[in-house]
Write a protein that binds this DNA or RNA. Structure first.
Lengths: 212, 212
DNA sequence: ACCTGAACACCGTTCAAGT
DNA sequence: ACCTGAACACCGTTCAAGT
């Protein structure tokens, strides 16, 4: 494919890596295949990035940068503000099923992740939360969102199971069958969980407000 | 080490694999090192398991089997019942930091996972939930729990970052610094999020009960 | 039935060398 | 400054062979 090859750069390498992960899965991302994809000697990448861990960090950053909603600029009240941001995060994560596990495990301690997080906490303080509460609530809702997307679209880490999986529709699991009867509606389920968590936190905040 | 070597078995292989992951990380689990650990030719494993994906599935099952709390036998009301089960799940997951990502991504569609899940839904029905609500609530709380543990102790997927990470205590992030001032108390944070989510669901259930 | 060992097509990373 | 290519110590999996 890539016959033209503009000068290599950290940015171009990372975009190619994410594209490779999206197309062929996490295991397909090797320094050698990445080089081939870029039309370059496999080792050329090492001039721009120290190792594969740094490449993963770049991929995490790239995905987060797709979240083009600035929580700090959203209107309140805070539960709606957070809900809007987290819905957007879910949408972005869903676009990268093979990368979600990487995003879930690599700590996003880069400026491009910390900076919006700091501004978001600032925004939530304007809405009456303490800095601590703002971060705890955000952290809990993000954990839920990432966990949900992981179960929803996350690619299994060692490749798909080849052995015939247990039939969930079996008579051995009557309650599960009953629960699944109306089908699986991920959007509604995600929304229900998010609302439940935010409502729970909001009620707790209100109680604190009443007994200071 | 392992000088004595009782006959190989699926069970013994999987226990050795989990021990290897716990000790040296996910990347350290190779068929070759696993064979060495078992005092056996690396390829011997293939007689008992079809491939590495099956090995991962076994590891997931082994970890889940450490959750020795039977949700179906717990006393109600349902939010307390679920909270007890999920606290126990978090405790077990925390013991296997390098395996959490595997557990989070591999669908646990084996009998040993489905069977307790089915009984748990049955138990929640006794507490007045529909099968569907029981599964949705359980699913949401599990997503939160796994997401939380992943952020808490989950090992980064491509190995640790070597480059100097951004100092979170920097003056560039005043709100984050303020939020972290009192330290990070994971147990309390986890509990707060779990209670918030369960309270939110419980309130919603109560409303439905009032307007049938 | 259960395990061995050679072989194949891959890996990440280092390092001296090229331009 | 930026890229190449050989080399090293690894991978997962297949398959014929051993006991």
């Amino acid at each position: 494919m890539a016959t033209r090859r503009p000068a290599l750069s950290r940015d171009r390498i990372i975009r190619a890596a994410l594209a490779l992960i999206d197309r062929d899965g996490l295991d397909a991302l090797s320094m050698r295949r990445l080089g081939a994809e870029l039309g370059v000697d496999p080792m050329a990448v090492y001039y721009h990035l120290p190792d594969k861990a740094a490449l993963f960090d770049g991929v995490v950053e790239a995905v987060y940068s797709e979240v083009d909603v600035d929580a700090a600029a959203l209107p309140g009240p805070w539960p709606d503000l957070l809900a809007a941001y987290l819905r957007r995060l879910r949408t972005v994560l869903r676009r990268h099923p093979h990368a979600v596990a990487v995003i879930a495990t690599r700590p996003g301690y880069t400026a491009s992740v910390l900076e919006p997080a700091d501004r978001a906490v600032g925004r939530l303080k304007e809405e009456g939360l303490t800095a601590r509460a703002a971060m705890e609530i955000t952290h809990a809702c993000r954990a839920y969102t990432i966990g949900f997307v992981l179960a929803e679209v996350g690619a299994p880490l060692g490749g798909p199971t080849r052995a015939p999986r247990e039939a969930i529709g079996s008579a051995d699991y009557p309650h599960l069958v009953e629960a699944m009867a109306e089908g699986y509606r991920p959007d509604e389920q995600y929304e229900a969980g998010l609302r439940a968590m935010l409502d729970g936190f909001a009620r707790r905040q209100a109680e604190i407000g009443l007994t200071p």
